[in-house]
Nucleic acid binder design. Sequence first.
DNA 1: TTGTAGGCGTTATCAG
DNA 2: CTGATAACGCCTACAA
Lengths: 328, 328
Amino acid sequence: MPTIGDVAARANVSTATVSRALNGKSTVDPELAKRVRAAAEELGYRPHGPARNLRRKTTDTLTLVVTDIGDPFFASLARGLEDTARDRGYSIVLCDTDDDPAKERSYLDVALQERVAGVAIAPTSATTDVGKLLDHGAIVVAIDRPLDEPRSDRVLVDTRAAAAKATTQLLDAGYRRIGFLGCRADGYPDQQRLAGYRDALGQAVDERLVRHACPRDDAAHDVVKELLAPPVSADGLLIASPQLVPDALSAISERGLSLGADVGVVAFDIAAWATAVRPALSVVSQPAYEIGAAAARHIVARLVGETDTPKHIELSPEFVVRGSSLRE
Amino acid sequence: MPTIGDVAARANVSTATVSRALNGKSTVDPELAKRVRAAAEELGYRPHGPARNLRRKTTDTLTLVVTDIGDPFFASLARGLEDTARDRGYSIVLCDTDDDPAKERSYLDVALQERVAGVAIAPTSATTDVGKLLDHGAIVVAIDRPLDEPRSDRVLVDTRAAAAKATTQLLDAGYRRIGFLGCRADGYPDQQRLAGYRDALGQAVDERLVRHACPRDDAAHDVVKELLAPPVSADGLLIASPQLVPDALSAISERGLSLGADVGVVAFDIAAWATAVRPALSVVSQPAYEIGAAAARHIVARLVGETDTPKHIELSPEFVVRGSSLRE
DNA sequence: TTGTAGGCGTTATCAG
DNA sequence: CTGATAACGCCTACAA
């Protein structure tokens, strides 16, 4: 691969001039600049990224840390981040933690090592240590879940209010015993949604209506069947975790109940296929793409020194009511 | 941030020794090595990635180029690639082309510029130019779709055979007029699936049964309604594009037909929610995670100089028959 | 086994 | 406006 020196030689100028010309510095004769560009073109010259990064003491890289890119929510978020960052000249490095703090630590470590300019992270816990990154000048923004670290910024969604709204809609539609189905009792999003569910129901929550099940062990199916039968006899379901929805729908059907008419259902983040089911599913959809885009815009703004950027951004989910949460 | 020099000073050794100790070279006194590690630890030293990359003339980065990480197939593939590459010390840079050759070119350009070690790419076209990357010594592997470039390797799926198998199953189940629904008539996977469909049906394909619809313009819904009514009167559907499935199911229901009993359906790559529908959907599932994992293993093998690595890897999709393609 | 020193390719400073 | 030159931080001959 040709270096800046080769280009300089071919254009009969110094490497300094080549650098200036190729980086669009104003202080270079248009004539020379043209010659340089021509030479660079002819040689197929590409600046050497690592060398440039070494010299500039920064990179054009952002790290995205999520639990699992296979989760459509994070996939869409990643897309928003990538589109937006790319537009502004940044590349995205992808990390999947599986909610494992050890993996997360190792990812943050390489991020530090590679001197990334910024990090968008869905932390495994609010106490995840991003101090060294911040010390080094990286911009850190928490996504989907908050970080205690006061120097980090955040882009969150008001998922609690959305859960309350969905629960209220179920009540309004005439469902009386609404169950809550979550995935990880200790996860921030599920906790928020449960809180919203309680907000809507008031004090009077029969705790047998609140259940958690992991999609891996296929207990979800049985858990829902329990919910639907005496003594619990739920006639509604707020499903906080998208992965649980197929199991829940199977269970409803196996109990001989019908969606909507017998049991009302609202689920989070299944927009892609909500209309594949009869009746179609009511959904709460987080603006995943927009979260990613906002995080990228935010990081870049901070990077270029904008100071009037809000530290906290909160977006609202969209709530779409369909047949699955309507009685008739 | 401390440099290798700071560590050297603190440990009272030369920078060379620090470098050797930290990189686990055998030629260093265990005693000194310990002192060095201690000093590094105390200072919170992290090697400077760009400097190291400059010196080593290579990076520990792979670039993943897909059309859209929001597509669950590519998301899962990305996950497989990331897990596997990470295990071996490589980071993943994510790129979304939207099937736009211009974007793709620009991504490959920065990959070259950053001197990535390898590229896994679902090319927008078989003629995508990866020559410069290969010239520079990067390992390039085509995923999901082939590349003409003979120096590139590939990890593909025998989606054509799978389509034939699915079509045959529909025929065996008693469906007679099977329609094909694809997304992009010019895309490689859809073409392969259409070819497999034709393989199974033989010469006798009523061309009115073959339709393409883009999920963006919501024509899909109407297209399927047309397929299901006279004069076409399809009683089966092979759906090559997962995004079209909700529209297709809505259309079936709006025609007053029932899934399975009246019209048999097999769809590609909707495993995540296939069991949410009544009756459950028959699916062809590509081993997305495994494609990514295989691509990563392959690239790393080549990078470490393994020579007995096959240039072409072909995996097989999984075909699961459920109620949607059974008459009773 | 350890240290010295040069250079990887850029950019930025500082004279001219 | 242009050119020499000195870093950036690391690794690796080569010498000791």
